[in-house]
Design a protein around this nucleic acid. Structure first.
Lengths: 229, 229
DNA sequence: TCAAAAGTGTTGCGTTTACACCCATGT
DNA sequence: ACATGGGTGTAAACGCAACACTTTTGA
């Protein structure tokens, strides 16, 4: 029974990427207008097919690179979607990934060269196939991840202010947090480096810039590190 | 480019199930001696192949039923493993699932009719392919799940004592907890029903039996329910 | 009467939350 | 001078962790 390697049951394996970005106020996802049938012209996640000689992680990175020109960003496998008729053309299994990117670093290429577009997660259009499901699952996962890993930093520029970080967490968790409590919490984690520079664009007084310290974080990892807001 | 539905890249999709059980003292997994090549005779997770006309969930349930006679148990998709050479015979993607079953309810069938065997997770043999990896991931996931869902009850008989529940949590989390604190915690969750029966097998005094209340739990779900030990 | 497991509360400590005012600067 | 966002500390409430003795009953 289970010993059968039966070629009849071979199927296509797709990968679809939920790409999160952040632009000072809200959490966004990157979508493209699908340029082939079926559902040509509808909004879709970035997707592609797994090739025979690559892993899923490789396929996800390759797809992302080819569709957006972006590479070396945080990506994580999410879930395998397998409804028999999820793709009307052909039986396809899709493994979804989610990725976090810093919009500023990549924006021009994305929206010009490729016809991709950022949408606020609150008002994203409805997506093809089961992509809405994938998106919902990705958001839940991202929310949970923030409690375990300092994952948000991938969504910010290298240097950022406390307020930006706070806004990011508020956007991800979809709730407001008290500014003093937030700063106390983050400082107690001791994973940031306070720079001697200020960002003068947001206020007359200017606000200090910070950056994430991988070294400090690695130290903390040994002792059950977690962030809870 | 990504529009290509290219048949050359069709591959087999396997599913492998990590089946957890609990026998009063320790957390166990169910393994079988593989009865076909490659690696015939080595210990393996329960596995099978996805058929063209079924979902992964269905395939996982079908496989479990056919290999163990067990059905209607808690199962959850874990992760898709995709190393190109993970199966030496043929390019295969494997989506792993983990399941929780109550050993007492199913034991005879499992170990007699099928040549399956329970192993303490602490001294399981090494497994074929990437199954050890799958097992590690499943254990981590199960540990984390206990904090979010009262998932452990699937591993116990319908009626159980507080001490059994405590031992289960200790086995899953691999740490000892204080009995009074544990009971206080569980009681404060208010998801159990205390029965007017005692289990007289474990002591002369006897200990009260409890059962899980789905209704109470569903009520709690509305307000960010979680268990932390 | 003794052995073995069941059952039961309190206190201290640390973490989380709520909350309000002054500061620096450009206009 | 004033408007705007930046920056700072404290007190109360709560949740978690540590801790020891009495009860029951079969052997």
């Amino acid at each position: 029974m289970s010993g059968a390697y039966n070629s009849d049951d071979k199927i296509l394996v797709a990968i679809d990427c939920i790409i999160f970005g952040f632009d000072k106020e809200s959490l966004k996802i990157l979508l493209i207008k699908r340029d082939f049938e079926p559902q040509k012209g509808h909004w879709s996640l970035m997707g592609g097919f797994l090739k025979k000689n690559e892993t899923l992680d490789q396929a996800a990175n390759r797809t992302l690179l080819s569709l957006t020109g972006v590479q070396d960003i945080y990506m994580e496998q999410l879930y395998a979607f397998s409804e028999v008729d999820r793709d009307p053309v052909e039986r396809t299994l899709s493994v979804s990934y989610y990725a976090l990117i810093n919009i500023e670093d990549h924006n021009e290429k994305l929206t010009k060269k490729y016809n991709a577009q950022w949408f606020d997660i609150a008002d994203a259009p409805s997506l093809i196939f089961d992509h809405d499901l994938m998106l919902q699952k990705a958001i839940r996962r991202l929310r949970r991840r923030t409690a375990i890993k300092p994952v948000g930093f991938d969504l910010l520029p290298e240097k950022f202010t406390m307020r930006q970080l706070q806004k990011l967490y508020e956007a991800i968790l979809d709730k407001e947090v008290d500014k003093r409590n937030f700063i106390n919490k983050i400082n107690s984690l001791d994973i940031l480096i306070k720079l001697n520079e200020k960002d003068m664009t947001s206020s007359t007084k200017g606000s200090f810039l910070y950056k994430f310290s991988q070294e400090k974080y690695d130290d903390k990892l040994k002792n059950n590190f977690y962030i809870k807001l």
